[in-house]
Amino acid sequence: AAKARVPCVIFIDEIDSVGAKRSSSQMHPYANQTINQLLAEMDGFDKNEGIIILAATNRRDYLDSALLRPGRFDSEIHIAPPDVRGRKEIFELYLSKTIHDKTIDTEYLAKGTTGFTGADIENMVNQAALYAAQSNATLVDMKHLEWARDKVLMGPAKKFKIPDSETNNITAYHEAGHTIVRYFTKDADPLHKVTIVPRGQALGFTAHIPAKEVYGRTKSQLLAEMDVMMAGRVAEEQIFGIEKVTTGAASDFSQATKLATNMVKQFGMSDKVGTRTFQDDEQDGGVGFVRVNNISPAMQETIDLEIKQLMHVGLIRFIYHCKFN
């Protein structure tokens, strides 16, 4: 169809759905046929044929290597989240579509939304406009935008589903643990807001916003963030005892485990494991159900112990904060 309409541009969104790595697995017999046909069609395009192919994906690591070679896709463009200047311009764009207070400081908003994407900012402005309408305000002002930022960061507040006093008490100490460590730890991101009003799926939330654009993280910064993650559970233990800890730290543990795993397996931040990296995806053994793991049992045990040690040290540092700050 494209060849009959030259010159033209073909855009394939989420190309990883049809261009994923080929496998000898018998579970998806048509997947390889799809990528093979796509590769054959792209090889058939001559330079003068007048067809330009563009594609987008959030999972570049899933794409077949043959798809990325020169002659098929010659250039790759990584679209990072906007920097402070970009966020300021995006705020101005979406605010221009609303009736808003002309004194709104978009520079301040841009600095306070580090890590937000264009879609996040659009959502934030839309939420602010809805909140202004619900408040019978004649225009959108900073108060509405800051409320919307908290909603995007922490989720919607559930003020009509307040838990009982015992649950609130436990949640308060849990969030206090996060707050104490984030406030007193030098390399942790600055504290933004703490609440025990249920938001989203959480009973409480301790929000933070990086002080500046983040292009890389030091080991001390990663350890500081891990200390913050572990602090909620330890606060519960210190106040209520080991038998009274709750399931509220499940998300914290999940994030801490992922961070510690990356530090050991990807970032080379373990003295015992060294700088060798380990991929999460195991190699295909060729039979579909069989997976080949190239990590020896001894090395796997070392990795597990190092991950456990990183998380355990985070618990010890929290107790230190409580005693000496």
Rank of each mutant, 00 (worst) to 15 (best):
V84A: 04
P156E: 06
E107M: 09
S24Q: 15
A4D: 04
V140G: 01
A55E: 01
Q255R: 15
N168I: 12
G118H: 06
S251C: 12
V125K: 02
I196R: 00
A211I: 07
I180C: 09
E306D: 11
A202I: 08
R60Q: 15
E49Y: 15
A250G: 11
A211V: 09
K161D: 14
A129I: 07
E243P: 01
D46S: 13
R291A: 05
I170T: 10
S24N: 15
V292I: 08
M27K: 12
A235Q: 07
Q283D: 08
P29E: 15
L130M: 07
Y320G: 09
F45R: 01
E89A: 08
D187G: 07
E213W: 11
T34W: 11
K265E: 04
Q37W: 15
A235V: 10
G232I: 00
I319R: 07
D16H: 03
A56F: 12
G44L: 07
D46H: 11
R149C: 00
K258F: 11
F205I: 01
I90K: 01
G115N: 13
S165L: 13
A40T: 14
R182L: 05
E237A: 08
A249W: 01
A1K: 11
G118W: 06
K159G: 12
Q221T: 04
D101N: 14
S96L: 06
T185M: 05
N136R: 13
G50Y: 03
D101R: 06
D227T: 05
V181D: 02
R72V: 14
E225L: 05
T302D: 06
L223Y: 03
G86K: 01
M142Q: 07
D150A: 07
A298S: 10
K212N: 05
Y320H: 12
K193C: 02
K308Y: 09
M230C: 10
I180F: 14
F73L: 02
S254Q: 08
T218A: 05
M154A: 04
D271Q: 02
E122H: 12
A172R: 06
A128N: 04
V313R: 10
Q37V: 06
I15N: 00
I53V: 15
Y62C: 05
R72L: 15
R199P: 00
S270M: 03
T257Q: 09
L130P: 02
E92N: 10
I209V: 03
K193H: 10
K3F: 15
V313N: 07
Y131G: 04
I180P: 03
F116A: 05
F240M: 14
L68S: 03
L54R: 11
